[in-house]
Design a protein around this nucleic acid. Structure first.
Lengths: 212, 212
DNA sequence: GACAAAATACCACAAATGTGCGATTGTCCT
DNA sequence: AGGACAATCGCACATTTGTGGTATTTTGTC
């Protein structure tokens, strides 16, 4: 059985070598390339078949790991990419996952965990440290419709929907077969209920608080 | 050391009893209550101290597990809630996590995994099955800013930012110490680059395409 | 049937927006 | 030196918005 091919992108030489050693000592795994910068890996990826897995540091010199991740995914969409980094701030995690990372490990992970993570992505999983998984779930709660109830009526929500979609009052009137004046009145009521007094305020509030 | 108190909400009697047995046989854990419906658990939660962890099925008779979850969180925000269910469709997972679940296990999990999951939430983790974790990461890729590049300049992005925040052109001019006319010109250019011709259109596009 | 809430409609006027022009200044690149 | 681009400022004018009113008709509920 062909071994699982793995590339490393990591600028710390000692850590890179240690990691390559760990991988090569594992059964059925081969660290076939190791780079210190994304650019080098991207160059080679253009010319040779992609590996099964890339272990990627973020916080590299040159182009950022996140940007690199996006480019890797463009060139080799089926290669699994596992982030391996010291950064655990929400933004980094969020952006990496949005860009298509298949896993996110912190550098304090033991060699066994890293090997297990590689097996896990290939089995269709998504390896993460405990604290990363926790952050990830926390991020979801932010999408929760906070749903302050401003007491909008059915019709008012409908008008709001149309405003958000970019129509003018006159266009809304035409679309809903009611007069301009009616739309205007509804707008007045919406504005007063949402405590705003400009169209931009209404729309921003609608988006930010998921009223639509 | 006081045992970890756990409540079960699960309508299948046999599974419920089996699970309670598993938990009670574990060290330092006690399944102090078991319910077949959310309503009962909610009633008791109003009257007695909350448990450390609730294992919650979704797909119950009466109010849905998701709604129940929200109410549990309102009454006892610090109690960890782990979803334990047969459902693995994106919507259920997404809604449960948005509502504040601390973990999501499928019912094919072994007793050991379930016990380990309880330990994991208490240690600040977020236990998930492999396939759930994978789904979760997939959901993130959907938030990826599609990032059409409209070629906005630095200044134009700044003006756009202010528009989105709800300021009028005059207010923006005052804030950035430039004349109303300049802001107006920038707006004209933004409108033309984004192919819109109303303020609402600009703001909606900015939100929808994550230009801000 | 009485009552409240919601939806409808109208007017008037100040304020803000959208869009057509043109123009100057500074910076960067070749 | 010249060209491209960004940022700045200006004017005029039609359109749209925001806000103060008032008023009628549906609709649902007790």
């Amino acid at each position: 059985m062909a071994p699982i091919t793995i590339w490393l992108v990591e600028d710390n030489v000692r850590y890179r070598n240690a990691l390559a050693g760990v991988i090569n000592r594992a059964e059925r795994m081969a660290c076939s390339q190791a780079f210190s910068r994304c650019e080098e890996a991207l160059d080679l990826l253009q010319q040779t078949p992609p590996p099964d897995v890339i272990l990627l540091d973020i916080g590299l010199p040159g182009i950022s790991g996140i940007q690199g991740l996006e480019k890797f995914k463009q060139i080799a969409p089926t290669t699994y990419i596992i982030i391996l980094t010291v950064y655990d701030d929400n933004d980094k995690v969020f952006n990496a996952l949005c860009a298509g990372a298949s896993g996110y490990l912190l550098k304090d992970s033991t060699p066994e965990k890293i090997i297990a993570a590689i097996d896990e992505v290939l089995a269709g999983g998504a390896p993460m440290n405990m604290q990363i998984a926790h952050k990830v779930l926390e991020m979801f709660t932010r999408f929760k419709p906070a749903q302050t109830d401003y007491g909008l009526t059915e019709r008012e929500r409908e008008i709001l929907q149309q405003l958000v979609s970019g129509l003018t009052k006159q266009q809304i009137a035409d679309k809903l077969y009611i007069s301009f004046h009616t739309v205007n009145t509804h707008c007045k009521n919406i504005y007063s209920k949402l405590h705003v007094n400009t169209l931009s305020g209404v729309i921003s509030k609608a988006y930010r608080e998921h009223l639509i």
